[in-house]
Simulated scan of single mutants.
Amino acid sequence: MTTNTTTTPQPQNQMAVSTYQKLRGHLAVLKLDAAAEALPSVLQTAGDEEWSMTQMLEHLLAIEVSATEARRLAGRLRFACLPTPATLDGFDYDAAPGVDRHLIRELGTCAYLESATNVLLIGPPGTGKTHLAVGLARAAVHAGYRTYVTTAADLAARCHKAAIEGRWATCMRFFAGPTLLVIDELGYLPLPAEAASALFQVVAQRYLKTSIVITTNRSVAEWGEVLGDTTVAAAMLDRLLHRSVVLKLDGDSYRLRDHHARSQNQRTATTPTRRTLE
């Protein structure tokens, strides 16, 4: 007598497979890719640990939420164009004793963005202005705010090119869009004649709506010279300083300190050791 070893799937198993496939299909249609990928392991864990349907659903959706937040963060970081990996936690306060730690921590909460407060970082080169500006930008990105970092020279060049190409309004909308706009290195390079107008219009569009962080090596009294137009400089400062935090940094350049430290270490390493004659 021949025994038939072929097993026929039970209706209950067929129903479970069909339901699983439908669930995967629903997740795919809704573009919940992370949840769809995690579904087998979540179902296995739910069965092993006897989760309720509510627990399983919460866990599955939590996976999708985490993946969505990670994608959004990556997108904000790409848009921000952060020039360095600087963070507020990595700032060397010992090298900048005049910087108020409590104030920097408060700015790091991004509460100033809710009131459209501006931040001006003023001081000589190498005192940490760009580090703090990038750190504030990074904190804003991680807090969920749309952020963009540029230099004063690049902003002026982009606005000039947009004006020539008939895209001035589009360019202005771009710089008006981010919740936080960081303008680095104002005063470091000579600006063309039309730069004052471009900077003023960007500041005017954002006035009392969104925040600007500016780093500069020139005092506010010198901005007329920097922009080549004292009237425009005064009008721009009037808007920037109306609601602002001004930090003045001083001290030696950290780049020069690092250079001197490396030079000293090299001299120490290459100095021959004298033997005492017996």
Score class of each variant (00 low, 15 high):
Leu88Lys: 02
Leu103Ile: 03
Ser66Ile: 08
Pro85Glu: 06
Leu60Ser: 02
Gln21Cys: 08
Ala62Trp: 07
Leu30Ile: 09
Leu27Val: 05
Val17Met: 10
Thr54Cys: 00
Thr130Met: 04
Leu60Val: 06
Asp92Trp: 00
Thr130Ala: 11
Ala80Val: 03
Gly90Cys: 07
Phe91Met: 00
Glu114Ser: 13
Gly90Ser: 14
Arg24Lys: 13
Cys110His: 00
Asp92Tyr: 07
Met15Arg: 15
Cys110Lys: 07
Asp92Phe: 03
Gln21Tyr: 09
His131Glu: 01
Tyr112Asn: 04
Thr130Gln: 10
Asp94Tyr: 12
Ser115Phe: 06
Glu114Gly: 03
Val99Thr: 10
Ile104Asn: 01
Lys31Leu: 09
Ala62Val: 13
Gly108Asp: 02
Asp100Arg: 05
Ile122Glu: 09
Lys31Gly: 04
Gly126Phe: 08
Thr84Lys: 08
Gln10Pro: 02
Asp92Thr: 01
Arg76Glu: 14
Arg78Ser: 14
Arg105Cys: 07
Leu30Ser: 13
Arg71Val: 03
Met53Asp: 15
Thr117Phe: 00
Ile63Asp: 06
Val134Thr: 08
His59Pro: 07
Pro125Ala: 07
Lys22Trp: 00
Val17Asp: 14
Pro124Asn: 13
Leu113Lys: 00
Arg76Val: 13
Ala16His: 12
Gly126Lys: 08
Val119Ser: 05
Arg72Trp: 05
Pro125Trp: 09
Ala36Cys: 10
Arg101Ser: 11
Ala34Val: 00
His59Val: 06
Arg71Ala: 08
Gln10Cys: 10
Asp89Trp: 03
Pro11Ser: 15
Pro83Cys: 04
Gly75Ala: 15
Ala96Lys: 04
Lys22Pro: 01
Leu43Pro: 09
Arg76Trp: 14
Ala80Phe: 01
Leu120Asp: 03
Arg78Gln: 14
Pro40Tyr: 04
Gln44Ile: 02
Ala95Asn: 02
Asp48Tyr: 01
Ala133Pro: 02
His59Met: 10
Ala67Lys: 07
Gly128Glu: 05
Ser66Gln: 15
Ser18Ile: 00
Pro124Gln: 12
Phe79Val: 07
Gly25Ser: 10
His102Asp: 10
Ala46Pro: 03
Ala36Pro: 01
Pro85Ser: 13
Gly98Trp: 10
Leu120Tyr: 03
Thr19Arg: 15
Arg24Gln: 14
Glu69Asn: 14
Glu37Phe: 04
Asn13Asp: 12
Glu37Arg: 11
Ser41Asn: 12
Ala116Pro: 07
Gly90Trp: 12
Phe91Trp: 05
Gln55Trp: 04
Ala116Tyr: 08
Thr109Leu: 10
Gln10Asn: 12
Phe91Cys: 03
Ala38Met: 13
Ala86Asp: 12
Asp92Ile: 05
Arg72Val: 12
Leu132Asn: 11
Gln44Asn: 08
Arg24Leu: 14
Ala67Cys: 06
Thr117Leu: 06
Tyr20Ala: 07
Leu43Tyr: 10
His59Asp: 14
Leu107Lys: 13
Leu23Tyr: 01
Leu39Ile: 00
Thr45Val: 08
Ala133Met: 07
Gly90Met: 11
Leu88Asn: 02
Ala70Arg: 15
Leu113Ser: 01
Tyr93Pro: 05
Asp48Leu: 12
His102Tyr: 02
Ser115Met: 07
Thr130Val: 11
Ser115Glu: 11
Ala74Tyr: 05
Ala46Asp: 06
Glu37Gly: 12
Tyr112Gly: 00
Met56Glu: 00
Arg101Asp: 11
Ala96Phe: 03
Val134Trp: 05
Ala96Trp: 01
Ala133Thr: 09
Met15Val: 11
